[in-house]
Amino acid sequence: MRRLAVIITVLILSAWGALQLSRSTTFMIAGEAIARVETNAPVIALTFDDGPSPRFLGDVLTTLNEHGTVATFFLVGQDVVAHPELVTQIADGGHELGNHSYSHPRLVLMSPSRVAAEIETTDQSLRNAGYTGAIPFRPPYGKKLVILPFYLARNERPAIMWDVAPEDDPALAGDADAITDFVLKEARSGSIILLHPMYDSGAATRAALPAILSGLTARGFEFVTVSELLDLRAP
């Protein structure tokens, strides 16, 4: 009975440890997870996940254009295939496109072939849509256990995470003012901000975006793409 209790305890602790690891924005068992870049330059990377959504993308691009701001859009491959014209709109605005997998699954405990397909099919979808720039990668939900880290390490490709994510707090996610206040308080040089403005659930985020851009600009920050931010890292 004692042995069974020990086994159960070990399994529970292992599962808990794996859960904590999967939530980490700064650590992977292989490769590199980047949540922020150490730099003294007053630069910030603004990132958006999911889509592109034909219903809401135009509002986001208009806001960015009005503020002279660039961003990195981490797109879902199946949505890229459905709306390649939106890829062109984003790229024409001077923004960077990232890979957020093809079908947005949790890339945990998947086979190597499935992990590779989710990433490589999305890369190809972006190229087929005419995009020629760098393609950073962000795992859906930030999950990156077992196979994915080794795939990324083998391909010398970091997992782009974040250090400012107001929507992670349910108390903030539906309140535009609260989202704005959180971002303005937490953002610092080298930060990577994560927002989800593409669907109905992102209404508060879209409403907060103009104030976020104005507030950070007033603090002296410049917005850069993820790739531009990575170029500022010390060797």
Rank of each mutant, 00 (worst) to 15 (best):
F221R: 05
G215M: 07
L126N: 03
G94W: 13
G77S: 02
E118P: 09
I212D: 02
G31M: 02
E32Y: 12
A116D: 11
V164G: 01
F48C: 04
A134N: 07
F27C: 12
V81D: 14
I160T: 09
F221G: 04
I7H: 00
G98R: 04
E228H: 04
L172D: 01
R114T: 14
D177R: 03
I193F: 00
T39Q: 00
L75E: 01
R206V: 00
R106K: 12
A165K: 09
V43C: 02
A165H: 11
P105G: 04
V6P: 02
A129L: 13
Q89A: 09
I7V: 12
E156C: 12
L64T: 07
L61K: 07
V164F: 01
G142P: 11
L107Y: 14
A173G: 00
E38Q: 11
A211T: 12
R219P: 00
M198A: 09
V80R: 01
L230N: 09
S103T: 15
A176C: 03
G130I: 03
V108F: 06
E85R: 11
L21V: 08
R114D: 15
H104Y: 00
T39Y: 01
F182N: 15
L184G: 00
L229Q: 00
F223Q: 03
A234Y: 10
P140M: 00
A159P: 03
A117T: 10
S111M: 14
L230T: 09
H104F: 05
L46G: 04
L145G: 09
P105Y: 03
P166L: 08
R55M: 11
E66L: 05
V81A: 11
W16C: 10
I192Q: 10
R36Y: 13
E167F: 06
G68W: 13
F27Y: 13
S201W: 05
P105E: 04
V70S: 08
R233G: 05
L19I: 15
L232R: 06
A178I: 12
S214K: 08
H100I: 13
T217D: 14
G68N: 10
A30H: 09
T69G: 06
V87R: 01
D123R: 13
S22H: 07
G51H: 01
F73S: 03
L229V: 05
F74M: 03
G98I: 12
S125E: 14
E118F: 07
L194P: 06
T47H: 04
D175T: 05
L184C: 05
G77A: 02
S113V: 13
I192L: 06
S191W: 10
A5I: 05
P52H: 01
T72Q: 11
T205R: 04
E222C: 06
A178Y: 04
T26Y: 15
A218Q: 08
T132N: 10
A18N: 10
P52F: 11
S125N: 07
A211G: 14
